[in-house]
Write a protein that binds this DNA or RNA. Structure first.
Lengths: 235, 235
DNA sequence: AGAGCGTAGTACTGTATAATACCACTATGT
DNA sequence: ACATAGTGGTATTATACAGTACTACGCTCT
């Protein structure tokens, strides 16, 4: 794996580009002075001193006690803990300070793009309290395997209708003949995601509208019954 | 709790100021058109449309299917799930792409400021694998109660030396006579944090240096023995 | 003279925000 | 029929700020 990905990942965690480069240098060398860090990364000393001070302020590095000021990185594991804790605090604060939320509407929400559709599926898995039904292709299921595994581990009953024998511990998998069909995901009998999804694009609708939920539920139930009837004929 | 804190918390989760204001308006109203959202928040329509598009791209809002474009907020619970997942992915990526880390050094790291000291304590709690010893004042212990509770819940043995009868399920608490003393925290017999901490400031050193670890360990052990001896005399 | 240590300052770029202008359509009042 | 207000939406410019690039200066030590 190349260096840029490490820098990208750190930037996603709140580092600026130069902070990330300096942090990486500190990881690799154990501890460095500002002058050494600037030389090692090619960042001008002026910016290096500023970015190191910022790393210390953010808690991602510490000053090493000694004569000349040297710096050491916080371990990456601890950086992970730190950003997780801070984010939990922010989420907690947001929930505590949330305004009165208007309830009741069940609009049809547009979910466009493969990434957005998969992300919405993950949210359905993570938010599920009782049951999950999914009619998806195996390649799409693979992309949310971890989230489904976590759901089954939480005791969520997961039923899958798939185009081939896909396997997940704790999940009930039906294999249908049709090669491909629309996405249909139902969570807890209340939330539904449906539409088109392939490797390059996604165009789905998410809703808690009871009519749409019932429509998709009937569609799925019907298709699962066909699969079960066919399996019975074979036995 | 006033509105600014909600906006601050959202900004910490990746919203810009205007995105946060618009998101809040969408939460309060269920769904809004761009024009309505601009009016509701006082943001110019040009910026409002741009920020709403950005909210959709970030996954924090969706377009409502219908004639005129209307928008609805992702629930705050789901926003929490989303940012957690993304952060987990970034942490995972960073760990996977991490450079070779230089091992072995055990420098004395400076930890300045009350917030930074408490944060380092929390990291020690979260990272503990076996034991935690803490000599702290009760008011400081209160600030890390949640992290200590999580540690005991994970089976970490927590021993506290405190200036009054502080209580935490699963922790062993000794009460000393001295009103206040230096901070001394030892994790797993390997990591130590020590120094001064009061309500307005903190000035500590963190290290994995075996000499310092042993020094603080002896100091704590000695003081706990005195407390235990005194308790025995009283009985 | 060169390396190491550190700070101050300027300039450029990108982003967020503030603001204005323009265009089109619909509804309403006169 | 016309003017006005409201709604929907985009384009553009300007400003402030943070991040980054860069230069200059001063000091100490070898």
């Amino acid at each position: 794996m190349s260096s840029p990905d490490f820098i990208d990942a750190l930037q996603a965690l709140g580092f600026t580009g130069q902070e990330a480069a300096l942090y990486r240098a500190l990881l690799e060398h154990g501890e460095l002075s500002g002058y050494e860090a600037a030389k090692e990364t090619g960042i001008s000393r002026s910016n290096a001193y500023h970015a190191l001070a910022s790393l210390v302020e953010k808690g991602f590095a510490s000053r090493v006690e000694g004569e000349a000021t040297r710096y050491a990185a916080l371990s990456l594991e601890d950086v992970g803990r730190l950003v997780r804790s801070r984010q939990e605090m922010s989420i907690k604060n947001a929930l505590a300070a949330a305004p009165q939320v208007k309830q009741g509407g069940t609009p049809f929400l547009s979910v466009s793009g493969r990434a957005a559709v998969l992300e919405r599926m993950r949210l359905l898995c993570q938010g599920a309290e009782d049951r999950l039904y999914l009619a998806l292709d195996a390649t799409d299921l693979e992309d949310i395997r971890d989230d489904l595994a976590e759901a089954t581990a939480r005791g969520i009953r997961v039923t899958v209708l798939c185009n081939r024998a896909w396997e997940l511990d704790g999940a009930l998998v039906h294999v249908r003949r049709k090669a491909r069909g629309p996405v249909r995901v139902i969570a807890d009998g209340r939330k539904v995601l449906t539409g088109e999804l392939d490797q390059a694009r996604g165009e789905c609708v998410f809703s808690e509208n009871p009519h749409l939920v019932n429509l998709i539920k009937d569609s799925l139930t019907h298709e699962i019954q066909i699969v079960q009837a066919r399996a019975t004929e074979r036995n």
